[in-house]
Computed example of a mutant assay.
Amino acid sequence: MISIDTIDHLVLTVADVDRAVEFYGRILGMEVVTFPGDRRAVRFGHQTIKLHAASELVEPTATHPVPGSANLCFVTTDAISRVQEHLRANDVRIEEGPVSRTGTDGSITSLYLLDPDGNLIEVARYDEETEQ
């Protein structure tokens, strides 16, 4: 048996890398980074999401890489009410929430939205966190 310790990065296939960078950087506050070969990504904490254009896939790749097929959950320490206000101020539609869910480490309160490619994005806060 082997042991997996953490996720280093994920790859999202997107229709338009610039549009994805704008969303993840401006709306979700992630750091925009550029790798050799002008490959673009966003970073938060110790994780990276590499953004690959569907029209210019990087090999090796998944069997059916298509924009809009991901479902990702990001954890915040911000108050969910603050996240709601930020999303509304930036004209981002909240698909659902706030709703109670279960995360890896316990109860969370979540908001659901779609990124520009239609990926389902969940922004969650662990319930035991003190509201800020």
Rank of each mutant, 00 (worst) to 15 (best):
G68N: 07
R82C: 01
K50G: 09
P36W: 04
F74C: 07
M1I: 14
D16G: 12
S100M: 10
L111E: 01
A124F: 03
A70Q: 09
L10Q: 06
A41G: 15
Q132V: 14
I80D: 06
P98H: 02
V58Y: 04
V42I: 12
G29R: 00
Q47E: 12
A54S: 11
S107W: 01
P60F: 03
V21G: 05
S110N: 04
H52K: 13
Y24D: 10
D117I: 02
L87M: 11
E56L: 05
S100V: 07
V11D: 01
P60L: 06
T6E: 12
T102S: 08
H9W: 13
L10T: 06
A70E: 10
Q84R: 15
E59D: 09
K50H: 15
T77R: 14
V14R: 00
V42S: 03
I94N: 05
A89H: 13
S69D: 13
T76I: 01
Y24E: 08
A79Q: 10
D16K: 12
L57S: 07
R26S: 14
E31F: 03
E122W: 00
E31A: 11
L114N: 03
T6A: 06
H52C: 04
L111T: 01
R39S: 05
V17I: 09
S3Y: 09
F23C: 07
H52L: 08
R93I: 07
V42A: 01
E59S: 09
T130K: 12
D105V: 06
S69V: 13
V66G: 04
P65V: 11
